[in-house]
Design a protein around this nucleic acid. Structure first.
Lengths: 199, 199
DNA sequence: GGTTTATCTGAACATCCGTTCAAATCAAGG
DNA sequence: CCTTGATTTGAACGGATGTTCAGATAAACC
């Protein structure tokens, strides 16, 4: 036996990545075998190698795609400078929560599986992560320069805020007590006060 | 050949746990074999089973020990009620940063390897984690009740602050630009303002 | 309808996995 | 010094691992 009915690269490729992302998020990269990914797709393990040269690259590409989509999405959602630095910070806060809760699997994998990346792959992902942190850092710096924010260490402030916002993923559930809009409002309130100048 | 010189349970037991904690933190539970742990200790794989019934229990006991030490250490460091709620929050902030940076491996494992726990073991660790969050939540609630803090959702506020504080572990290095005391001060400043009533 | 090409199967590869256990060895107590 | 008990070795177990590849099959094109 060999090629099955309905088989097609345009269909199987995305399904492989979906299955891998889901399984990696749930059980971890090292605990998920190529055979398990193949079973989830409904295919034999060997067929996966039409879509990735190896398991490591499959992980890396998932993480890279996520980080690049994150950066592109934020760059597309960044308010114009004339909207003011406060609007920029609010936009970042809400964007981060919204984007990350909608892609919980990719966020989880991109953070948890860093240690399973080859050194060169790790450096790429780490660079993208730094890029993203720098976006927020720039907002904080501008706010300080304009006398609107009080942040002694903008780089550390950026990392602290991102850690806080990403933490939403550990408890937020779509059908929970609080809507996404309510969660955004709660966190924006904390972010705003954490960096505010007055008070 | 068999028993080697200098072998003793009192020595090997802790060394097994140390090696396991270090390797689990560095490479992840699933990626670390019993043979690798044994090699780090300088022993054959079979000898590990004098100190743990199986690999799963070894992981679980590391996590349980860490969480219980965390709770005991905070309970021992909690300021008396008459010191005031603000002092309690500052003490928690500083305690969390100090304790967690000193035990980075255990913190990392206790968070990252949750998904590798058997369901019943997971429930135990999750319960301990909730206990710890509840300690901070209680401080926030008291602050709100006394009119000193403004926190709309104390449970979520507690999780948000803990996420922010734990984030220190991702970048803090003992010999970095900032001392632990400086980091504590930076974060306490952000925590204080994030929950403050005035402003 | 016949040919080509993309896609998949199924078996095979060497290697590693967690765990068990009899036999061997060392430390401690009398 | 000899016995007893704790500790470790080394081999073995069945099974899972990532990856390769010749052969089989379905889809696409003429």
């Amino acid at each position: 036996m060999a090629r099955t009915q309905g088989s097609h690269s345009d269909i199987t490729g995305p399904r492989v990545r979906e299955a891998a992302l889901h399984l990696f998020a749930r059980h971890g990269y090292a605990a998920v075998s190529m055979r398990k990914i193949a079973a989830e797709v409904g295919v034999q393990a060997g067929a996966l190698y039409n879509y990735t040269p190896d398991k490591q690259t499959l992980l890396f590409e998932l993480m890279r795609a996520h980080m690049e989509e994150l950066l592109a999405a934020w760059d597309a959602a960044t308010p114009p400078p004339e909207a003011g630095v406060r609007a920029a910070l609010e936009a970042f806060t809400r964007f981060h929560i919204r984007f990350n809760t909608r892609r919980a699997d990719a966020v989880f994998v991109s953070y948890m599986e860093l240690r399973n990346l080859d050194p060169e792959n790790f450096n790429v992902i780490e660079g993208l992560r730094r890029d993203y942190e720098t976006r927020l850092e720039a907002i904080l710096r501008r706010g300080v320069a304009e006398g609107r924010f009080a942040v002694a260490e903008p780089r550390i402030g950026a990392m602290a805020l991102i850690a806080m916002l990403t933490g939403v993923n550990t408890w937020f559930r779509e059908r929970g007590r609080l809507s996404l809009a309510e969660v955004e409002a709660l966190y924006w309130d904390m972010v705003r006060r954490a960096v505010a100048n007055q008070g």
